[in-house]
């Protein structure tokens, strides 16, 4: 049956299954290599052990649109359309979830989306205070008060225009 041939099932850490077109799934390097390893096998299920279902859904949504836009705008304009979609795609994602998403994308080895999410996180923390950045990444401050004051003094100019929300 041709219809199942170009489909693959991605299984999340909770065991939820997602049926995905091969054209979409092939953007995930890990899926590609798993399928290549078990070529000839009729079993087209790839378990993504550490990836939660919500992230699997986001990643599929991204690459589904990516593939569709690429097909539709073969003649040109793909990059602008993709940028538009990426903006809208990122708006729906909670800032804290971006961290989970970047881990998932990194695990699945999907370079285009990895770049998009890293850029989005960078954009988010760009004008944030040091305290916010620590909290966002769950980092414990290991400087003494004196050390921190000294470092701040070295680059005092870098602390203008910071917001904390």
């Amino acid at each position: 049956m041709a219809s199942t041939d170009d489909k693959v099932i991605l299984k999340s850490s909770e065991g939820e299954c997602f049926e995905v077109d091969m054209a979409v799934a092939s953007h995930l390097q890990i899926v590609k290599s798993v399928l290549e390893d078990c070529e000839g096998s009729s079993d087209k299920v790839v378990s993504l052990f550490i990836v939660e279902a919500k992230y699997v859904a986001m990643i599929i949504e991204y690459y589904k649109n990516y593939v569709e836009l690429k097909e539709k705008h073969e003649e040109g304009g793909f990059e602008e359309k993709l940028k538009e979609f990426e903006k809208q795609f990122l708006e729906q994602i909670d800032k804290k979830e971006l961290k989970g998403l970047v881990m998932a994308v990194n695990y699945l080895n999907a370079p285009a989306l990895f770049d998009v999410v890293c850029t989005a996180i960078a954009k988010h923390i760009e004008n944030k205070s040091v305290e916010y950045v620590r909290e966002y990444f769950g980092i414990v401050n290991d400087f003494t008060a004196e050390e921190e004051a000294q470092i701040r003094e070295e680059h005092r100019w870098a602390y203008d225009g910071v917001n904390d929300d």
């Binding site: 040091v130 950045v133 470092i151 680059h155 100019w157 870098a158």
Partner: peptide, 10 residues
């Protein structure tokens, strides 16, 4: 500018 600030995260 943000990188310079991040130097004092940890």
């Amino acid at each position: 500018k943000s990188i310079m600030r991040c130097k004092c995260v940890c």
